[in-house]
Amino acid sequence: MSLLELDSVTLKFGGLTAVNNLSMSVEEGQVFALVGPNGAGKSTVFNLISRFYTPVTGSITFDGKDVLKMAPHEVPNLGIARTFQNIELFHQATVLQNLLVGRHRHRKTNMIAQMLHLPSVRAEEREHRHAVEEVIDLLDLQPYRNSRIAGLPYGVRKVVELGRALASKPRLLLLDEPASGLSVEETQNMRWWIDDIRRHMGITVLMVEHDMGLVGKVCDRVLALADGAKLAEGTPAEVQSHPKVIEAYLGTNAVSKGGKVA
């Protein structure tokens, strides 16, 4: 059974069909990419999985559990973590605090215990910190531990957001345009990290990405969307040379010239 399954999911905003009868399945251990032109509904798929939107029809299951029965804040408890296209960090807090919020689903103590700072709370805090330090080591965030997000450059924020998602020790990681706005070196780093995340941490990755170079290098499987519907699915090479995909990106003429999406 697949880890994440969408079965004929449709979402409408008023008259606009944002996602049209979409079915897809992500296998455990895969790196899966959603590609497509702007407005194709890629982020909307993420927001459906995060339960920010509720589909009109269709089902979403994660590891056999019905995601649609959950409230948005319960989704992370299944082991799904995500990043956002426009970076949604806690900008008044430090990097460390941001990453520790990632540990929220692993908390065990209650309000009263925390207020009194019982030994159990202290022990738990050490545990959280330990987990977070592992993420900091992986992503080379040591210099920024105590910096506030508000003063950090864009590239670092992007990494912190990835770190916050990783800190929750997810089984499935949703990355919304992890490389957008990053420099060549930063994109290169992102590529190694995604590889590491899959290989060493055993986390399945579903990402939305425009950079076909990155997609070609890290992804096992790609699904191309246009106008909310599935256009093509397969390995990166297959999708890139699929005539419908080329048409959606470059127009009809490009197909006859034997073009390939860059």
Binding site: S50, H73, F84, E88, Q92, G102, H104, R105
Partner: peptide, 13 residues
């Protein structure tokens, strides 16, 4: 305080 939407995505009710 800083972002309700991502608080939710991190499992904060």
């Amino acid at each position: 305080r800083d972002s309700e939407i991502s608080a939710q995505a991190m499992g904060v009710n």
